[in-house]
Write a protein that binds this DNA or RNA. Structure first.
Lengths: 68, 68
DNA sequence: GAAAAATACGGATTATAATCCGTGGTTATA
DNA sequence: TATAACCACGGATTATAATCCGTATTTTTC
């Protein structure tokens, strides 16, 4: 369950694929652990607002646009 | 410093005052600790997306609208 | 200007976000 | 078909979000 994290993760994944970069690549750019980025996209974790901003920044999009 | 948490907290405070409820009251409704709600508004802490949603829900607004 | 309500702030503890490293499986690419 | 790039998933540890008190201070209200 955890619909919030699940859809947030899906949104991040979609944006990332749009940019044509790998999970590891994005993780590296954002300065987050590669395995953690996987968990984020799978919706297994509940990230902080700070992390949301880091990721959105590297994805070149508005943080709000990633939220369900 | 920590501009992100500071402005997020200020936004939450503004919305709360708009509704005319107390910090403790909002904390109680959201199911978060009263002292923690104070720290949030003062921008001393980095909250999770889940908390952001809980708070926005009780403030009757969109989570994205609370973000800087 | 005193009493009450609301907020600031702190220390100590608990829950959990985030890291680090490893391995196995799946999907491109040569 | 093998080699590499990409992803899923895990256990163990560290950093920090969130809780649970308590008290002092500010702001409202009478």
């Amino acid at each position: 369950m955890k619909i919030l994290a699940k859809t947030l993760g899906a949104n991040i994944r979609a944006k990332r694929k749009e940019m044509g970069i790998s999970q590891d690549g994005l993780a590296l750019e954002c300065g987050v652990d590669r395995s953690y980025m996987g968990r984020i996209e799978r919706g297994e974790v509940n990230i902080t607002v700070e992390k949301l901003y880091q990721i959105a920044s590297k994805l070149g999009c508005n943080p709000a646009s990633l939220l369900p």
